[in-house]
Design a protein around this nucleic acid. Structure first.
Lengths: 135, 135
DNA sequence: CTTGACCCTATAGTTGCTATAGACCGTAGG
DNA sequence: CCTACGGTCTATAGCAACTATAGGGTCAAG
C-alpha cells in the first residue's frame, strides 16, 4: 500500500469530518467509493483528501450538498464557462442576504416584544404573551 | 353542531396552516386532539383556533416547536413568573443575533469569492474555484 | 346517484447529518 | 498464542419540522 493511503479515520481527522459523515457522503455519491484494503477497510488517496477538503469548505460556506455536487461537477469539466460557477455562488449569496434581512426584522420584532416585559410580574399580566398573541 | 365549529380545512385557511401540518401538530401534542363529527371529521372550536394562531405566530417569530410548547405551557399557568417567558424570548433573540453575524461574515466571504470571477473564461482558469479551494 | 371537494389513516420522503447495534480487523502486551 | 483495545464494517433508526403519497371514507350540490 502506497504511503499516501489513508484510512477513513485519518481522512476524517485531516478534514475535520466525522467518519460517519464521510460514509454518508459516499452513500449519496458526493465521494466516490474508494478502494478497499484486504480487511475491507476504505483506503483513500490524496485526490480523495482534496475532494473532501473542497466539499467541507463549500459546506462551511453554506452551500447545500446539491450545490456542492454541481460545483464539483463543474470543477471537473475545464471547458464549461466559469460563469456557471459564479451563478451558483451568486444565487447562494442572494439566499444568504435574504436570510440576513429576514433575521434582522425578526430580531427587531423580538427586541420590541422583549422590551414589553413586565419585570417581576406573573404570567397573568405578562405583556410579552400579549405581544406575541395580540387579540 | 355549534356555529363556531370548524373543520380542519377551515382552521387551516383561518391560520394559514396546511391541513397536514395541523394534524402533525396534533400528533406531536402541540394541539389537543379535537372532538370528532359523526363522519369522524375533526371539529375545532374558537379556543383551538386561538391556540393555533398563537403557535403560528411563534413559528413566524422563529421559535422552535419545543419553545412554542414551553410558551404554551407558561401561558396556561397564570401564577408562573413572566420572567420565564422573557427568558425564552431573550434566548431566542440571542440565537437570531448570532445567526445574523454568522451569515454576515459568510456573505462577506461569498462576495469576496464572487468578485474574483473571471468574466467570460472557462473553468480551466476559474478563479472562483481557486478561491473556494485555496491550495 | 354521481361528481367533486373535502376528510381520514398510515407511511415514506426531505436535508444533512448523528447515533446505535452487532460484527469484524489489526496491533500491542502478557 | 490469547486477549484487549481501538478502529473499521454494515444496516438501521433518529433529529427538526414538516411535506407528499396512497388508498380509502364523507358530504353537499346538481
Amino acid at each position: 500500500m502506497p504511503r499516501d493511503d489513508l484510512k477513513i479515520g485519518d481522512l476524517g481527522r485531516a478534514t475535520g469530518t466525522k467518519v460517519v459523515t464521510i460514509r454518508y457522503y459516499e452513500k449519496i455519491g458526493l465521494l466516490p467509493a474508494p478502494d478497499r484494503s484486504v480487511g475491507n477497510y476504505r483506503t483513500y488517496d490524496a485526490a480523495a483528501l482534496e475532494r473532501l477538503r473542497f466539499i467541507r469548505r463549500c459546506r462551511d460556506l453554506g452551500f447545500s450538498l446539491d450545490q456542492v455536487r454541481e460545483l464539483l461537477s463543474l470543477a471537473s469539466d475545464v471547458a464549461r464557462p466559469c460563469a456557471e460557477v459564479d451563478k451558483i455562488t451568486a444565487t447562494h449569496l442572494a439566499d444568504v442576504e435574504r436570510k440576513i434581512t429576514d433575521l434582522q426584522s425578526l430580531a427587531q420584532e423580538l427586541r420590541r416584544i422583549s422590551a414589553t416585559c413586565n419585570g417581576g410580574g406573573t404570567i397573568s399580566n405578562c405583556r410579552i404573551l400579549d405581544a406575541i398573541a395580540p387579540d
